[in-house]
């Protein structure tokens, strides 16, 4: 297969970026998208040019590092997968593929397709943990309703890739925050601080320049783990609860 790639190139956070066009051929349909970029980078190195910087790590869809906006969709033209799980057979031979970094004021571009997602870590530091003291019984010794455990597990599937922020027209991180809040709130150990956690994480999200949620459901549609916006409703409930306790 052969493709024309329009890739966002940006030297550093301060410089102005632009699209560069590259031709690539002899690509197997079974090549993953990231492997295709590896081949492109090999070609660029052989030509004495700067390779394209892009984030990647596990290449198994679980680390949340890969973060490309491909042909107008976060993680490309397939549902509930990360970029690393995308294969070139999803494209037509001869296609032009436009590759952009996540775009949000809270995720500044570091270089080319790499964005700084440290803001997610800062949100987690604001409350995405359990800090109750005292002797806590072993987790396996606490009875938990199956429905609650399932909901917590579903929310825990969030890999923090930032596709929700990248897709949201407001650059909102509500789905990410809601998933983390929900995952902990559904479990007995996390329930105790649930309201306080919701308030402090939302506050941090605002401080870091993320937008607000307008319930378009775009985040849910593009989330590689299919996290539901029902978790956002739970976050909203807990936030109101926290405000009433103030």
């Amino acid at each position: 297969m052969k493709f024309t790639l329009k890739v966002w190139r940006q030297k550093n956070a301060k410089s102005k970026g632009r699209f560069e066009t590259y031709k690539i051929d002899n690509i197997s349909p079974d090549t993953s998208f990231l492997e295709m970029l590896d081949i492109l980078n090999n070609n660029l190195v052989h030509e004495g040019k700067e390779p394209v910087a892009f984030d990647h790590d596990c290449r198994e869809g679980i680390c949340g590092m890969c973060s490309l906006y491909i042909n107008g969709r976060a993680h490309g033209p397939d549902d509930e997968i990360t970029t690393c799980q995308l294969h070139m057979r999803k494209f037509k031979d001869g296609d032009t593929i436009t590759i952009e970094p996540w775009r949000s004021a809270a995720f500044p571009v570091v270089k080319d397709l790499v964005v700084n997602r440290r803001a997610f870590d800062q949100i987690l530091q604001a409350g995405g943990f359990i800090s109750i003291s005292g002797i806590v019984p072993d987790a396996n010794a606490i009875p938990i309703r199956k429905e609650d455990a399932d909901e917590s597990m579903d929310a825990s599937a969030c890999i923090g890739c930032g596709a929700c922020v990248a897709t949201c027209k407001n650059g909102s991180a509500m789905l990410f925050v809601a998933a983390r809040v929900s995952a902990l709130e559904r479990l007995p150990q996390g329930k105790i601080e649930a309201a306080k956690r919701a308030k402090s994480m939302v506050q941090k999200m605002d401080e870091l320049g993320f937008g607000a949620c307008s319930n378009t459901q775009a985040c849910e549609a593009e989330c590689p783990k299919g996290i539901s916006i029902a978790h956002i409703a739970r976050l909203n409930r807990l936030f109101i609860q926290a405000k009433l306790q103030d």
Partner: peptide, 11 residues
């Protein structure tokens, strides 16, 4: 402010 004009996607 969270998604200014200069941060719009090309596609």
């Amino acid at each position: 402010a969270a998604r200014p004009r200069e941060l719009k996607y090309a596609v």
